[in-house]
Amino acid sequence: MSDLYWDPISPELRDDPYPLWRRLRDEAPVYRNDRLDFYALSRFADIEAAHRDAETFSSNHGTTLETMSPEPMDSAMMIWLDPPRHTTLRKLVSRAFTVRRVSALEDRIREICAELLDPRIGSGGFDFVQDFSAILPPTVISILLGVPRSEREELRQVVDNVFHMEEGVGMANEVSYTALTELGLRLGAHFADRRTNARDDVFTDLVAAEVADEVTGEPRRLTDEELASFAILLFSAGSETVARNLGWAASLLDQHPDQRAELARDPALIPGALEEILRFEPPSPVNARWSTRDITVGDQMIPANSRVILITGSAGRDERQYTNPDVFDIHRKVDLHMTFGYGMHFCLGAALARREGRIGLEETLRRWPDWTVDREATEMLYTSTVRGPLRLPVRV
């Protein structure tokens, strides 16, 4: 048996997966895991091609290893849908992320950062993730959707439970399932309210919106399940990934103080630096698809009805795509990375995530041009699809 082994759940493979992913790219770019019955793609070009070919690499059977099923999912969750239903819903919910609506959040995001960071001035230190980066995105999303302040902290705790991980089963556990149900019920109640109490928020927009039925072509409103599924996706995925992204930013810049000093002196460098952070340490480095037909990748055939893992974190370190990919460089021109996906399933919230990351880093550097991470007290969050700091104590 080859000593080359990888799966997205084994705890011993989580802390520094990059040397192993390099071996996968070099030795087994189409990797086969017999024990857990999946294939894995690790090279940038192969992963980009898979994202482009959504007809062959379907999302309709689930997008995490432990939740995938042989039968298509009977779900309204947009990330688990293929065309034509996916196309219909995506056109509609993309209205939540118009340039006008996202741009209008600029000042409010900055205010939230000030509310969270100003009390830490003079404190000597704080947990950058738990006290800041894990609070910022769900607060912004709550404002976007129309969730009242009184519910935001409780919903953040529910989202944390959605990503609860148990050894051997990943997120396929009772805590995670219960949290998903609770999140759907609580967010669904807001949609019911907006039917009689319209407001200037996304909840109201979605309740009032009409889509063309995929079968009849007749206009229809979104179902309760479709409404709740979209809110769950936005609240959970948007909160979790931005929290990890900002955590990675604080961690990496502590390891590269010269580059951090450059960003403090010239904030105009921050947007480019964030793209490098997203490439170098993606908050969601692993995604899954289902092959709908036999497909040859390189010189290896992946049979129809196979689980296929796309290791986007490996794509970001592929030397076939990037020069010196294991070097962190805020001046690198990153024309393309796979961190937000690609093609049909490109992340709807990417513009909002980038804005939150930019403003969050600007406001942090404005108050503290340097900090020190307590590495011994740092804790990481690992699921089969998310990887990043859970607790990141910093001395300031």
Rank of each mutant, 00 (worst) to 15 (best):
D107R: 10
G184I: 12
S103G: 10
G184W: 09
I309C: 00
H345I: 05
D254L: 02
P8F: 02
V373M: 02
D213M: 09
T383Q: 09
L117C: 15
D7H: 11
R355L: 08
E376W: 03
D254T: 02
D266C: 02
P267K: 15
L365N: 04
D107E: 13
I9L: 05
A192N: 12
C347F: 02
R367N: 06
E151I: 11
M77H: 11
I232T: 12
N197L: 06
L24W: 11
G188K: 13
T178H: 07
S306D: 12
L89E: 05
W6Y: 14
L36E: 06
P8Q: 04
D46S: 13
A189M: 08
S384D: 15
F128L: 13
S75R: 12
F235Q: 09
P325L: 00
T178E: 14
E27S: 03
A28N: 03
K333N: 01
E275Q: 12
R355T: 13
E225M: 13
R14H: 14
P70D: 15
E276A: 09
V102P: 05
D107F: 08
R52G: 13
P219C: 05
K333R: 07
G217N: 02
A315C: 06
D7M: 08
A45E: 12
A268Q: 08
R95T: 07
R358F: 02
E71Q: 09
R355F: 08
N245H: 12
F128M: 14
L41P: 08
P11S: 10
I270C: 04
T98Q: 11
L145M: 13
T292N: 08
E106L: 11
T223R: 15
E210W: 03
L89H: 07
P257H: 12
T87L: 06
P393H: 06
I141K: 11
D201W: 10
A350F: 02
L180I: 15
D37C: 02
W21T: 04
L361H: 08
R293M: 05
S103L: 11
V286R: 01
A268W: 06
H61R: 02
P72H: 14
S229G: 14
A304M: 03
D374Y: 09
A114M: 04
G170S: 06
D318M: 07
A237I: 03
A50E: 01
L234K: 00
T204Y: 06
H190K: 13
L20A: 09
P84G: 15
S284P: 06
D326N: 11
D7F: 11
S94G: 15
E363G: 09
A96K: 07
F126T: 01
R317H: 11
M1L: 05
G184C: 13
P72T: 11
Q255E: 12
F230P: 00
R186Q: 08
G316L: 01
R366C: 08
Q300F: 01
P8I: 04
S384E: 14
F340E: 09
S133L: 09
E48N: 09
